[in-house]
Design a binder for these strands. Structure first.
Lengths: 342, 342
DNA sequence: CTGAAAGCGCTTACAG
DNA sequence: CTGAAAGCGCTTACAG
């Protein structure tokens, strides 16, 4: 391992001068800077981050909190996997490395302890455990944070505009001539608002057409996976067999719901129309005609990295940044000969 | 930030004594050890890893190389995503953190530079770029490594027993009465042997039945995704319309292949039987009846972490560790009234 | 059983 | 424009 002192000896300059040349700061003559940089390259010098971190207090490490208790898919989550791919790329370009924070690290260190231990400079909260009290501690810790799903007071959230997506779904159904429309949700939580916001937008939009949304048409599934969708759809349909359409808050649930509908002999979209959410590749192959919403994972990741890098630089973050979700029109929505094109 | 010196002042001991007590080494009276540990806990002390790393040369960081150029799914890869979930869990239990190594980190640092920069103690090679010359440099660098897919001279590989899986596939078809069996492969590479080994096992097994494998029945797709499977199946089937079964090296390809077969009006398994590989959730929902092989991702990850941790401790690694893949029997294989049950 | 000294590789004022 | 000194927080021989 070659150090700054070796370089000092080789070039005849002092260690501080080497440091300044390599970091591009301080006042040095262009010539010495040049000499030193070349010597470093020739010697194959690589700085030692531990030493750097110790003296500067900057680790160039970004912590990531991703628990995914809701879907239990970890890296394979339909939104988070892709989001992380892009986020990682962005922060690497900026010279940061990713570090996963974990509850079971080293005999159960807390996130904050883990951060202090590694001098983590900023944190991306992808998906914490529901109502984890440590989230508030994080917000109070002074470590710059950004969240991409959960609302945590004091932390900026970069998230899809769920409400306008919900409106869009209602509009698509309405324009296609549907009036009895079901909503298949997932656990409503104030802090993790995906399901709730989609519902709000959906309901608001329907009401704007003068048609009150009948609460009987709402069914909240008790989880985010297939079987819950199957069970929820069964309940909803047995209660309200008059619905001609249903908006489901995620594709995994939609998949389960469709499975139920097909099992009882219904045809999609002839008997019942379906719109999902996520554009989940796992579901797409099975249901290539499912209309859905694609969350812009690249954009969310990119904005999140910008917000976080700015926060690290001391720029205050906005409270929330919304990213438009894109409606993907395929063929799971039936149109009743209406003239309004869509 | 509270340091070891604060603890020294509070307890009346010296810094080295604090260090020994906290790290559980050195000869200390149980009493002082106790006092110090309690004081540390009470003060909310967390060690500073940068300082530790600087003085011990141990960063407690494991680098991960995961490029996934073949499937381009990154964290969403059918094998690697799950593998990484488990691997991460294992090494975190041992007090290590994961660090992704990247080619585009900090103006294009090499993997090795990145490792030196962070004092990475060991490396998990999940999926490098094909024929990356840096892999040999890595093996020669002296940094402990383990690989879970690619064969790299000098690095231990923990990988599915592809050959016996290939044999199994042949046997399943044979026992079911098939004799004209196609093989749909993917690029054959010596170092990344998934496709090649499956083929070898498949061919060997068929030959053991006295039936030579006709090379015309082999078609090598030019990539690992759907469309390549579709195209490959088209070629194979147009050339050999007499086949009654086909073994496909991965489910994504199998999905494309089945799409083609269905499009030309074939029924699975009545007209043609299919066995895939991976038990890819992405495909499973679309083709719930597809027989396939499940790679034991948890086991691979666990063994890989063991090998790596051992290597870090100085124990030499075996050359290769094989993990059995499990045949998942569903209903995409037709049986011709044979009596041998399977 | 405990501590004084030196060192890990870097950077930050400060002096000249 | 360049360098001597001190410090970041920890650990490792070594001495007693």
């Amino acid at each position: 391992m070659i150090t700054i002192y070796d370089l000092a000896k080789q070039t005849g300059f002092s260690a501080p001068t080497i440091s300044k040349a390599l970091n591009g700061n301080g006042n040095l003559s262009g010539e010495t800077r040049q000499t030193i940089i070349e010597a470093a390259k020739k010697a194959g010098y690589t700085a030692n981050m531990a030493a750097k971190a110790l003296s500067t207090k900057h680790s160039r490490l970004i912590g990531v909190i991703m628990e995914d208790v809701a879907m239990k898919r970890g890296f394979e989550h339909p939104l988070f996997g892709g989001l992380l791919n892009k986020f990682r790329h962005e922060i690497e370009m900026a010279g940061y490395d990713l570090l996963f924070l974990s509850k079971h690290f080293n005999d159960g260190m807390s996130y904050i302890e883990h951060c202090r231990y590694r001098d983590v400079e900023g944190i991306l909260v992808v998906n914490p455990i529901d109502d984890d009290p440590e989230m508030n501690a994080l917000a109070a810790s002074g470590i710059p944070c950004v969240s991409t799903n959960e609302f945590i007071p004091g932390i900026c959230t970069v998230v899809s505009d769920n409400e306008s997506a919900g409106q869009m779904a209602a509009r698509v159904f309405f324009e296609a001539g549907h009036t009895k429309i079901g909503f298949l949700g997932a656990p409503f939580r104030e802090n993790s608002p995906a399901a709730l916001e989609r519902y709000k937008g959906f309901k608001t939009e329907l009401e704007s057409y003068g048609t009150d949304f009948d609460e009987r048409y709402l069914e909240v599934c008790d989880a985010w996976w297939d079987q819950a969708g199957y069970d929820g759809m069964k309940k909803l349909y047995e209660r309200c067999p008059d619905i001609t359409a249903v908006f489901v808050v995620c594709d995994a649930l939609a998949f389960g719901a469709m499975k139920y509908l097909l099992e009882i002999g219904k045809t999609i979209p002839d008997d019942i129309s379906v719109i999902g959410f996520d554009d989940d590749t796992t579901v797409l192959k099975a249901a290539p005609n499912l209309c859905t919403f694609r969350q812009d994972r690249d954009k969310i990741a990119q904005l999140a990295s910008e917000v976080l890098l700015q926060a690290i630089a001391g720029v205050p973050s906005p409270q929330v940044v919304r990213v438009q979700a894109q409606y993907i029109s395929r063929s799971s929505v039936r149109r009743f000969g209406r003239s309004i094109p869509f």
